[in-house]
Write a protein that binds this DNA or RNA. Sequence first.
DNA 1: AAGCACCGCAACCGCCTCGCC
DNA 2: GGGCGAGGCGGTTGCGGTGCT
Length: 297
Amino acid sequence: MAAPTTPEENEFRRGPWTLEEDNLLIHYIVNHGEGHWNSLAKLAGLKRTGKSCRLRWLNYLKPDIKRGNLTPQEQLMILELHSKWGNRWSKIAQHLPGRTDNEIKNYWRTRVQKQARQLNIESNSEQFLDAVRGFWVPTLLQKMEQSSSSCSSTLSTSQNSASPCLSPYHAAPCVPLSTSPPSNATNVLDNYHISGNSNLATVPSNILSADSFVSHVPQMAEPSTSFPPAYYRLGYSSLSPDGSHYVDRSSYDVEGLSLDPVSAMGNLGNSQFDCQMGGNDWMLDNVADNLWNMDGP
DNA sequence: AAGCACCGCAACCGCCTCGCC
DNA sequence: GGGCGAGGCGGTTGCGGTGCT
């Protein structure tokens, strides 16, 4: 015999938010501000817990939320900051304007950890960190450079979806890689340098200088790939048969940089790869083989 | 075309911390 | 100082979409 449900259990809705609920929440917060989530939920007329309202607002409805795939710059930031702080998603998110801890957490679990699994190494192990330092970071940096140069040369061309310039990296904001760093620029790759690993030696020096991508992070947060803020986004929503709604993402869900080591390695080229192997036999013997052979027998 | 497997992400859960009384 | 509630955070789950066979 099922336990009788209490009034409290019946009081709160769960599951996907409806368009109506979103509108209620948005309008209440616009008029009264956020905080005091439990009372907010009641006063807004929402049959949701305060926690649920807070989560919905912070992760989805807040106007400055960036959507779409993470740019190479953002991915680099995540890799770097995670190496510093571990799974402190909210702390990492503070350094990625418009990105939520939930989004970063999802990215880490679905992309980065997947790669670690394919390499048969723990995502929090030193070996995995070496793989990140040795392959993905240089590749991401290279992608940033490519996007920078190709964007500058092709951005004036037609920007329809078939344009090569709107491939994931090209769709990302162009980050200027000037050689005159701001004096207060900090290099988030510092700990890669001090790791005793010389893998980054092949990365163009202008990228690894004090004028690293980090000093441009605010610029990369430009909304060129982001979805419009929630208030505008709602116009893209569609109603599903059960009354919940979803957002049609077809217009903005460009594929971001894959951490797929195979394609990553393909972008590096052999000579570069050889240079990066110095001083790290484990990488040479294990990761490299795995990376090269991942799609093989 | 249909079925299946995989993937990405929104949302929930449970624990922890903090502030107030 | 202890209890309590609210908020915050990291971990996990479930569902819808997509690609593959």
